[in-house]
Every structure is written in structure tokens, then in C-alpha cells.
């Protein structure tokens, strides 16, 4: 102790002072600890969103592509009055809901088997199997589905004997591809939720005379519900923002992401792209508010 004190005295006077202030004031310590991440969140994350909102209130010279910093609501007026943007918004939300529903239907039996039926060893293998597709590039998977749906692809080959054709590139192919891409994000939270259901609840339910269907409906599903909500936030928001898969397998289909991309990348119209980009943000805020109301987020 004595030696330490001496060491401390030997330190630069100012430094010793700072150190002791930090020692004495826990509030300051917490403040210093949290400031960098809060700055990151505030400046980089919310700042970027704020910049996006501000840009959406500017306009662009149609011809030269230069941004004109004049305050106007013109972009939002176009967005709400031109019918094609409403159609695209409705289509995007519909697709997001459809992909979420398909993923929920597929994820439930898989997650249930993983959590309650499989042996611990099989359980580990299944978790790896579910995560495995995430190791492959998004583009590779999307292009794989492009091959599947092509006119000389496997789907055509399977359906032809029945006098049917591949649905080709369009909404069907997009739904299947996106549902495939986001499935792990639905399986994992549902699996986590089901794993927390104690086995004794199944026994109790059986003791009280419920059949397996009844148990599933009244005991398992309500307890898995927070998992579905968490998973659906992923599948829904990822679909809302997608523009690459739809470019690869969507044929002529346009989603909100494509409109943003076309306006930013092709037309240089950053202000309008920013205005369009606020639509998924608003939709997601609404979705999160609805998810919160269900109470599912608290029990996660």
C-alpha cells in the first residue's frame, strides 16, 4: 500500500487528479463508459436516419442530377398521389406478410422437433444444419433459385409430366426465394422459445386429459408466440428492404427497395429515394408497435 501510494505520488499530478475524480464519482465513470456507444448510436445511427429524412425534403434537378437544397414536400406528394407507388407499397407489405406466414408455418414443426423430440446430439446437428445456409452467400442462394425456376430448370422438369410449367420469374419465385433465405431467422427464435417450455407442462396437459392437438394449441403455441413475434420482425423487415432477390428471380416485379435503388442508383434522385425509404421505416415502426402491444417483446 505504501509503495502504491508512493507510485501514485510519482505520477503526473494532473493524471493522479483525474484518476481520483473518476474513483470518487461513479456517475462520471458510468458516463465515460457509456458515452462512446451512445455517441455511436446517436450520431452514426440516428444521425444517418435524420440525414435521410432531411434529404427527403430536398429536391433534385431532374436533368443535371444535382441536389437542390430547397425545402419542399414535393417528394412525399408524389409518393402519395402517384398510383404506382401505392401499388408497390401494398405489394411489398403483402409480400412481407406472406413470406412471414410461410416461414412461420415451416419453422414451427422444425423448431418443435428440434426442441422437444430430437436427442441432444441430433439437436446440435439440427441447429448447425439450420445455420448452415447462413454461411453461403445471399447471392449464391438467390441465383440457385433462379436456376430452379428457369425454363430448363428442375421445377419445370418435375412438373412437366403433370402437364404443368414452372411459374417462371415473378411473385411466386420471389416468395419462395425470400422464405428460403429468411427461414433460419424464424426457426431460431421459435426454437429458443420452445426449448424453454418445461416438459412437465406436456405431462400436466396430458394428465388433465388434453390430446396432443389440444396441447399444441393451448399450451405450446401460446408459449412459442413470443418466438414467432421475434422471428417475424426479422422476416418482415428483411423482406420489406429486399431488392436483390427480386431482381434475380422477380421477373418484372418491383418492390419498394427497387424503387429506392432505381432512384438512387439510376436516376440520381437521392431526395426521392430518401422519401421512398421512409415508407419501410414507418411500416416497421407500426409493426414494432403492434408487436409490443401483444406483450410478446416483454417475455423474450
Amino acid at each position: 500500500m505504501h509503495q502504491l501510494r508512493r507510485l501514485d505520488d510519482g505520477l503526473d499530478r494532473g493524471e493522479g487528479l483525474t484518476l481520483s475524480i473518476i474513483d470518487r464519482r461513479p456517475g462520471l465513470r458510468v458516463g465515460l463508459l457509456l458515452t462512446p456507444p451512445m455517441l455511436w448510436l446517436g450520431a452514426a445511427y440516428l444521425g444517418a436516419l435524420g440525414a435521410l429524412l432531411i434529404t427527403s425534403l430536398w429536391t433534385q434537378n431532374d436533368f443535371t442530377g444535382n441536389i437542390e437544397r430547397v425545402w419542399t414536400l414535393e417528394n412525399f406528394k408524389t409518393l402519395f398521389t402517384v398510383e404506382v407507388y401505392r401499388t408497390i407499397t401494398v405489394r411489398t407489405i403483402g409480400l412481407a406478410a406472406l413470406v412471414t406466414a410461410v416461414d412461420a408455418l415451416l419453422a414451427f414443426p422444425i423448431a418443435l422437433y428440434m426442441a422437444k423430440i430430437a436427442s441432444p446430439r441430433a439437436q446440435r446437428l439440427l441447429v448447425i444444419a439450420v445455420l448452415m445456409p447462413l454461411w453461403a452467400s445471399y447471392l449464391v442462394k438467390a441465383y440457385a433459385w433462379r436456376g430452379m425456376f428457369s425454363a430448363d430448370g428442375p421445377i419445370e422438369w418435375v412438373l412437366q409430366p403433370f402437364g404443368l410449367n414452372t411459374p417462371g420469374y415473378g411473385m411466386v419465385a420471389t416468395t419462395v426465394t425470400l422464405a428460403y433465405l429468411w427461414l433460419p431467422y424464424m426457426i431460431l427464435p421459435v426454437y429458443a422459445a420452445l426449448e424453454r417450455v418445461p416438459d412437465s407442462l406436456f405431462e400436466a396437459s396430458a394428465d388433465l386429459g388434453a390430446g396432443s392437438v389440444h396441447t399444441l394449441r393451448r399450451v405450446v403455441l401460446p408459449m412459442a408466440f413470443p418466438g414467432f413475434v421475434a422471428g417475424s420482425i426479422f422476416t418482415f423487415s428483411l423482406t420489406m428492404g429486399d431488392y436483390i432477390a427480386v431482381k434475380i428471380v422477380g421477373g418484372t416485379t418491383q418492390l419498394l427497395g427497387n424503387v429506392v435503388y432505381d432512384n438512387q442508383g439510376a436516376a440520381n434522385n437521392l431526395p426521392f429515394a430518401a422519401a421512398v425509404a421512409t415508407v419501410p421505416i414507418v411500416v416497421m415502426l407500426g409493426y414494432l408497435a403492434a408487436a409490443r402491444r401483444t406483450g410478446a417483446l416483454e417475455s423474450l
Binding site: 436533368f63 402517384v82 404506382v84 418484372t252 432505381d262 432512384n263 439510376a266
Partner: peptide, 15 residues
């Protein structure tokens, strides 16, 4: 019509 109009028109074509 200028290129900006064409861009909007093209979005409408694709629907």
C-alpha cells in the same frame, strides 16, 4: 419531357 419524367414513366411501366 425530360429524363426525370422518363424515370417516373419507367417506374409506372414496370408497375
Amino acid at each position: 419531357t425530360n429524363y426525370g419524367d422518363w424515370t417516373t414513366a419507367w417506374t409506372e411501366v414496370k408497375g
